[in-house]
Write a protein that binds this DNA or RNA. Structure first.
Lengths: 213, 213
DNA sequence: TAGATTGTTAATCGATTAACAATC
DNA sequence: TAGATTGTTAATCGATTAACAATC
């Protein structure tokens, strides 16, 4: 019974605001105007004010925005004021890289477990975690109040695993498998398709080569 | 002397089209209509036809689109008909994961070298590659006709490294460092900000929890 | 109070969808 | 030829920018 719906475009910009405000805070900057922030971030001041106003008045006329307050408010919007408990499916290179990326933990994203299909990996330590067999996913999710599942396995198994965790009540999936997951309404999937990203880069590179003189 | 400018929204959708068409091709499907494809991909048929028409007539009235032809044409647009030569800066977990992600190589993205600052890593094998010292980046780029640089180091060093490779004539950077790179016009940066992606997921999860009853 | 800067409305721009004539 | 489906124009929708009144 909250919240009008915020456009995905606005939500997509929040993490970047959060990053810039964090840096400003660390530099000891106390207040900033939309004008100053717009020069720093290379977006329009108008967009900044519109974006923040979706959430209702973070600023003050004649003064601007208090950096620390704004930083904290955006953090709350992003759900960073509470801890999230994650598991990673897939202990391959990517799963391992994510596990060891401790930076997430500072923001309240805690990796609680990692799972793999490969018997040779079961029991192996990855950072603080021990690789568990896929059969234990369901019981682990329930026992540890997991709220986000990271899928870091090849696309062949991804859809089936997604179905399994959704059946356990999982409402958020961070998907690195190169396939679309078909989940029911109310479940959010955030895709990280690395090869799509690389292809976009390649597109622009090729086009540039062909069009410049 | 090519090409009107294609909107980023359209370019962003090309890799997904490419993926679906590749799957259809592998299944032996010969032709598809915008209507059928729209059901499969859950977008409007209108959008599909508009998108393809940016590049001028891939289809045929009364017939639809030839899957293999369309697949190849989009591949060409994405620059996948020619090989790209990449180096990775940073032999940490992420750099290692990317090196071993051989899937890219199938699409013509060839990792030619990997570099790190840490003396303990220099000389170590990562997949087929041997970690080299950062001092050798420039000479390696020139000697091996590198056209894409992957930045997989913490943000502290990222901006400086980007400047170095841009000075070597690099025109495309795939940036995993959690910072904005400030590059001159004509250089493309494709950012993969993993924590931004995770925060977006967290935003939606939190909002859902607060708004459902 | 005067100056600064937000919050918010109005204008513009771009992207998506709908409709249909062209054509295979 | 008739039916199907694209290519393309027009209509709608949404997002961004500009402008300015409200207010600290």
């Amino acid at each position: 019974m909250d919240s009008k719906i915020i456009s995905p475009a606005v939500i997509g910009r929040l993490p970047r605001y959060y990053r810039y405000l964090g840096d400003l805070k660390d530099e000891g900057v106390e207040r900033i105007s939309s004008q100053e922030l717009s020069e720093l971030m290379k977006v329009t001041a108008s967009q900044i004010r519109q974006d923040f106003n979706n959430f209702g008045g973070f600023g003050q006329q004649g003064y601007g925005y208090n950096v620390e307050y704004l930083y904290n408010e955006i953090g709350k919007l992003l759900g960073l004021h509470e801890n999230h408990h994650l598991i990673i499916i897939g202990a391959g290179n990517l799963g391992r890289a994510l596990t060891n990326y401790s930076n997430f933990e500072n923001r309240g994203f805690i990796f609680e477990g990692i799972f793999d299909q490969n018997p040779a990996l079961i029991g192996k330590k990855i950072g603080e975690l021990t690789v568990m067999p896929m059969e234990e996913i369901e019981s682990f999710i329930l026992a540890h109040s997991i709220d986000i599942v990271v899928i870091a396995i090849p696309k062949t198994g991804a859809v089936a695993v997604a179905d399994r965790v959704v059946n356990c009540g999982i409402k958020a999936i961070w998907n690195f498998a190169h396939t679309d997951l078909n989940v029911p309404d109310g479940v959010v999937v955030e895709n990280v398709h690395l090869s799509d990203s690389l292809m976009k880069l390649s597109y622009t590179l090729s086009t540039k080569n062909n069009s410049v003189d």
